[in-house]
Nucleic acid binder design. Structure first.
Length: 551
DNA sequence: GTGTGACTCTTAAGTACGAA
DNA sequence: TTCGTACTTAAGAGTCACAC
């Protein structure tokens, strides 16, 4: 099921150097100020050389034209990923005495030759140096050029009448692309040991860790615990931890740039008395770690640029040009810090080589671990904030036939977990979010109770009340609270007693997924002692609804 | 008409390297 | 240790064609 999302304003803003708005590129070099990526410089001067001024000017105009629809990083990719290799291709043609310098010289035949040229390119740096370019690289490189050319075509620029594009130059590219691997369990353990050492040192006040390393330790911790992407974590603000309607939980809110959504994860909250908390040297929950990080960086807030004051991952640079300045942690320096973290702890992978620790691999690690524990790809999808389960299956977990069958019945409701918040900040329930926070009181007060738990929308179109409680487990309106456990488990044991009365294959097919859903999905969300008490009560004195009712 | 899967396109992430 | 830049690749949402 796709989660509808509101699109944010992703437009890049033009820097107005001369104080007036014009829709022509200000020159061969200009700056675009993107709200996400800051000021990005674009310089087309090198592209004008070798008699390609006409082509370079059209590419520049295309990019300028696209600044309304793409963020800065994408525009940057057009130039550096889309155009640079194409210019190398043209250089090769020039070396063979074939001059291509005008837009109208680019036609289908030339693009076919470019595709063939891309197939011959070798990786020039890194561990794959000397290997052919991957299909992903070739695809992105070609598509970026294609976007620029399409823009010119649509804008009425003088393109060749023979300009067209091959229908599918990279078949099955998605399937053929490599996936990021999760860390093995021993590797995870080594990371955790290193984290614990640092956290203990930080909270016992005996750490000589740099500000960058303190941030990196928390970054890894949050990534392991939440499966969020690097950018989502770096974008976290001081108010990212918010109150949850249930007393033993709290919400961690993160913003996901790609997908234009905000995501909220329910975290368990410690209910230890304040006096007891004071005796604990190291925080015991993710929420407390986050609060601790907020406290660590709080003294720096006054010194950072005002627009960055709400962010948590801030630090004081200790060397070089910006020495002494308080800035936000960016992805590049975070990776640099991660390498230092690995070096400090001499972390190794399973082959005995230095561990390649990066946040992107912690995401599939989180997903794989969650899937291993729950065997429920739907929950993994919710936890990762994907719009559909196919994305989750494609990138993070192979859906087994058993898992696919399980997903046929989906408890899409709130099991003490919000799945998202609207962009405007209004808290909503469950995947399709129809009930605002203020109506929670009504729900908590027992309104809309069903035979099994609660429903946020029990009314049919004809205003009659839905009583198809078996459908609850497929229904996105289902909600479960602690008070509902007795009734839910009464239903559960009622199903178990039916097992001896009907065909076992039929029972397994019809009720098995429900039993499994209650055991693995719902019960695990509540304190074990409450679950045990509710089970016992349901067995000894079933809820009246399920005492003698025939199914 | 609908569901599925392949494909498209944008954007983020990661590596490498040299300079300061 | 920080920073800038180039290069390479993966992630993820949207779109579309096609089989049923």
């Amino acid at each position: 099921m796709a989660i509808r999302r509101n699109k944010l304003d992703r437009k890049a803003n033009l820097t107005l150097d001369v104080g007036r708005v014009v829709d022509m590129p200000p020159g061969w070099a200009f700056t675009i100020d993107c709200p996400h990526h800051g000021k990005l410089k674009f310089d087309f001067n090198p592209f004008r050389e070798s008699g390609r001024e006409d082509l370079a000017s059209h590419m520049r105009d295309a990019l300028w034209n696209m600044r309304h629809t793409s963020v800065g990083a994408t525009l940057y990719s057009y130039l550096n990923v889309g155009l640079r290799p194409f210019w190398r291709f043209l250089d090769d043609l020039t070396a063979a005495s074939e001059e291509i310098g005008r837009l109208d010289q680019i036609d289908r035949a030339l693009l076919d030759r470019y595709l063939a040229w891309l197939e011959l390119q070798l990786v020039s740096t890194g561990k794959d140096r000397g290997e052919p370019w991957s299909i992903s690289s070739r695809r992105v490189t070609f598509n970026l050029l294609k976007s620029l050319l399409l823009n010119r075509q649509k804008s009425g620029a003088p393109v060749s009448t023979d300009l067209s594009f091959p229908r599918n130059p990279f078949p099955n590219a998605n399937r053929l692309s490599q996936k990021r691997e999760a860390y093995s369990v021993p590797e995870q353990k080594r990371i955790l040991v290193a984290l614990n050492q640092d956290l203990k040192a930080i909270h016992e006040g005996r750490a000589d860790l740099s500000g960058l390393q303190v941030l990196v330790v928390h970054l890894v911790l949050l990534a392991l615990a939440t499966g969020r992407n690097m950018q989502s974590l770096l974008d976290m603000k001081r108010d990212s931890l918010q109150a949850h309607p249930l007393p033993d939980r709290e919400l961690m809110v993160t913003y996901k740039r790609r997908g234009w959504s905000t995501q909220a994860t329910s975290l368990r909250k410690t209910l230890a008395p304040e006096a007891q908390k004071a005796l604990q040297a190291i925080p015991t929950t993710i929420g407390e770690h986050f609060r601790a990080l907020c406290a660590i960086t709080a003294p720096l807030v006054d010194e950072i640029e005002q627009r960055h004051q709400a962010y948590v991952f801030i630090w004081r640079i200790t060397h070089l040009e910006r020495k002494g300045q308080v800035v936000r942690l960016d992805g590049q320096l975070a990776n640099s810090g991660l390498r230092m973290f690995v070096k400090r702890h001499a972390l190794q992978d399973d082959r005995g080589k230095p561990l390649a620790l990066n946040i992107a691999r912690l995401r599939p690690t989180f997903a794989t671990e969650l899937y291993r524990r729950t065997r429920d790809i739907r929950r993994v999808q919710q936890a990762l904030g994907h719009a559909n389960v196919e994305t989750t299956a494609r990138h993070y977990a192979e859906a087994s036939p058993e898992a696919k069958r399980d997903h046929a019945i989906v408890v899409d409701g709130m099991v003490s977990q919000f799945t998202r918040m609207e962009v405007e900040g209004q808290v909503l329930l469950a995947a399709d979010g129809k009930i605002p926070l203020q109506d929670m009181k009504h729900l908590l007060a027992g309104g809309y109770s069903t035979g099994i738990a609660r429903c946020k929308n029990p009314f049919r179109e004809n205003e009659s009340v839905c009583q198809k409680f078996f459908h609850c487990f497929k229904c996105p309106s289902m909600c479960v609270f602690e008070d509902d456990l007795w009734r839910l488990f009464s239903f559960y044991y009622r199903l178990l007693t039916e097992r001896s009365k009907i065909n076992s294959a039929h029972w397994l097919k019809t009720y098995g997924p429900i039993i499994r859903r209650i055991d693995t999905d719902i019960a695990s969300q509540f304190p074990a002692d409450k679950v045990e008490a509710s089970r016992l009560k349901a067995q000894q004195t079933p809820h009246p609804t399920w005492k003698g009712m025939l199914l």
